[in-house]
């Protein structure tokens, strides 16, 4: 059974005004337990609107969303329970920070879950380690931190609640390449330890390739494609037509292949790309006639 089931979901902003705007039309998707789903799409394609439905921040204009088979809007009073199951990290999560120490900020969620003090402390320590910040930062004011550090603190705050599903909207925008790489690695470790489900929205194709089991491609409020990562990025032409891209290494392999070199087109890491090219030297000549 799917963990998150979305059926015929549509969402219209400012529905009862004279300038309604359809953000999502007729979305049908299933997300299964323990998956990592990447979501890509041009600005305004409906990615953020969609993920805000996952924890009931937005109510569908029509259609439904089911978590573990239960319609989350069946009893609107219980919507708060959903927010403990599905944790959402917004774009610019650094704006969500409000406490006077990093420790308190991360502990805020777990405190509201009525956990014991030891458990709260364990969770704070575990999450700060997970986002790759030193323990010494716990006593600092969040407002002394750099942009990248603040973002990590905000993410740790959601991780500390250990939701079944964690949704991250552009978590790596503005991080330097090394921090970005480490963040993706840590997220993978967290995923394999917690056996949870992760949904990550990003404009960075390298990140999406690196981490996702399946990729959802949004275009103008509709689902353009939803498939295994490898299959999505083999469709370079479709992606580029709708304002997206393939990872740079994949682009190089496309170009080599178009030049007549016998290389695979579904290559997503520099290491695999190098291996493919070295193979050219191993077999004869390497050029197709």
């Amino acid at each position: 059974m799917s963990l998150i089931e979305i059926r015929n979901l549509s969402y219209i902003y400012s529905k009862d005004t004279n300038c309604p705007k359809t953000a999502l039309s007729n979305i049908n998707i299933d997300i299964y337990d323990n998956e990592i789903i990447g979501i890509i799409g041009h600005t305004g394609s409906g990615k953020s609107t969609l993920v805000q439905h996952f924890n009931g921040l937005l109510k569908p204009t029509s259609g439904g969303i089911y978590i573990n088979g239960l319609d989350i809007w069946k009893n609107p009073k219980k919507i708060r329970d959903i927010r403990f199951k599905v944790g959402l990290v917004f774009q610019y999560p650094e704006y969500q920070i409000f406490e006077d120490t990093v420790y308190k900020d991360i502990a805020f969620g777990p405190c509201n879950m009525n956990l014991g003090p030891n458990e709260i402390q364990n969770r704070v320590i575990e999450s700060i380690r997970m986002v790759g910040l030193p323990f010494s930062i716990l006593d600092k004011s969040p407002f002394e931190l750099s942009g990248g550090e603040k973002r990590k603190v905000a993410i740790a705050g959601v991780m500390a609640m250990k939701p079944n599903v964690i949704v991250l909207d552009e978590p790596t925008a503005g991080l330097d390449p090394l921090s970005r790489k480490n963040f993706i690695e840590n997220l993978k470790t967290y995923h394999s330890r917690e056996k949870n489900t992760i949904v990550i929205v990003s404009h960075n194709m390298e990140d999406i390739v690196e981490i996702s089991d399946r990729v959802l491609v949004m275009n103008n409020g509709r689902v353009e494609m939803f498939d295994r990562t490898k299959d999505i990025f083999s469709n370079g032409d479709v992606l580029m037509r709708i304002g997206l891209d393939v990872p740079k290494i994949t682009k190089i392999m496309f170009k080599l292949s178009n030049e007549g070199y016998r290389v695979k087109r579904d290559v997503f890491s520099v290491k695999d790309g190098a291996e493919e090219i070295l193979n050219l030297f191993r077999c004869d000549g390497g050029l197709n006639d």
């Binding site: 041009h42 600005t43 774009q91 925008a173 194709m205 304002g243």
Partner: peptide, 12 residues
Amino acid sequence: DEPTSMLDPKSR
């Protein structure tokens, strides 16, 4: 100062 970090590939 990082004018494209919030943008999709085409806008970038």
